[in-house]
Design a protein around this nucleic acid. Sequence first.
DNA 1: GTGTATGGCGCG
DNA 2: AAAGCGCGCCATACAC
Length: 569
Amino acid sequence: MELLDPDGGIHRELDPAHVASEVARLEAEVAPRWVWRDTREWAPVLLDAGVRVARCHDLRLCGAILASSTAVAGARPVVRDRPDWLPVGPAEGALETTVPAAASVDHGPALFEVEPEAGPERAARPSAAELVVEHDRQVALAEASDRPSAMRLLLAAESAGALIAAELHAAGLPWRRSVHERVLEEALGPRPPVGRKPARMDELAARVRRELEAPSLRLDSHADLLRALRAAGIGVDSTAKWELREHEHPAVAPLLAYKRLARLLSANGWAWLDEWVVDERFRADYVAGGTATGRWATSGGGALQLPKAVRAAVVADPGWSLVVADASQLEPRVLAALARDPAMAAAGRGRDMYRSIVDAGVVATRDEAKVALLGAMYGATTGDSGRLVPQLGRAYPRAMALVDRAARDGESGRQVTTLLGRSSPLPPPSWHAAQAAASQPDATAIDERRARSSARDWGRFTRNFVVQGTAAEWALCWLAGVRTRLTALSSAAGGPPAVASGAVFERAPHLVYFLHDELIVHTPSEMAEAVADAVRESAAEAGRLLFGEAPVEFPLDLTVSESYASAEP
DNA sequence: GTGTATGGCGCG
DNA sequence: AAAGCGCGCCATACAC
């Protein structure tokens, strides 16, 4: 079914409240899948009006995946006709693909198209007819891909992610300002007047100056600090803390303490609290599909880098609880399942994969197992990790072959692709230039070394891409599953209807945080156990969706508590 | 003044 | 011990 207005599908003058009620009505009547250019144009408007939609197809995000995917049929470097009203997606690679001829698909879903909040930089708004054509084109590409069911799943998950990102912003993470202030005061002392450093930092700085005999040293200047350290006989090559830690000088301890406090102050101090926490909610700007691998990014607020120290401020409302869950050892489990490595999958069946690797006699300690596995996925060549990787390779040859193959592909400038079909970007022109320079007859040893080094760098990126990207797909499916189940839970409990006059999240359990392999649901306490079950069921379902009945498990560490901090392991 | 590069560090 | 992936943000330094 399609919903178009009499002027050809453009609700140019429509009152936002009217749009919302139309959408709400259709949600209730036909549960459509909304097709729009960009979820960021519509989801915030609808959420403001208290309306949630169940499903959508985000043409921008899906178009970006399809444009660069090697899994799309006829992927050849030829020009394709992608409409210019479709902004380039975040992960769009340089590879162009052909559109299958005679694309004929039954597109089924509803289409709704309204005037976007036109930013000055935004391309001309598409007509409804153009949206239909583009949607057909994308569906046709997905159907013609190597594994249509996988690509359909990826596009659905990516679109669901876009909706969830908007909802996370609308809901906000419950944030207890008083708790955060207490954390700051305990660490830094009372809030200083503007332009002054906190007392605790001043004291530490004075001690560092005294110990270094540098009375006018500014600790915030790396160059000055490095000079002063070296003048005091501390043989460091940088001011980094892991280097400082190696030295036994009375200035080191106060300096490290100063740096820790400086970081807390600048990243999550009082200014951050004033800017980002409003009405006891932290509203981050999530960027779904914001990284090459498909992980999300954020812009502003640093929501993906919340230091452990301030997580104590994440506290459920009275009568509510937080369900905090993370997928333990997600990436190694994904590698085992992806490679269909039977020995590694056996290790991935238990709760502690690293322990199982030790029990299988591959390495001696749990810590070695962890370091070796991370080294295999990241491409470590030196140190403890590099030394242990070969042992891992002998025990798990298929898994090792998968990541080694991905690395070789990247080193040769080829794309690699995740399980569901997201492909890595091609290396930039500067990379190709470096490779070309090294193959010239007059190439210098430096040219060759640079080319080899950048080839290896890119190989490490593609090596990790297949694992991190597939793990991101698992996480998106998990997240989408949780969202669907929470909706079902709240309707079963007589929760809010689609329209709840701006209070979509007031009475129902809802997602409030997502961090790569971790999520938080804020829920009325009496529903917490049901929510926990929904979260666990969704994880199991994500495993089945990606890997079928593969013999790898994806166990969660899950806690029901009042505060994020008390949910930490 | 605005923009970019770099070091450093927080998270997964 | 500080390599080996993906990010964002802050402060400083330096360009224009």
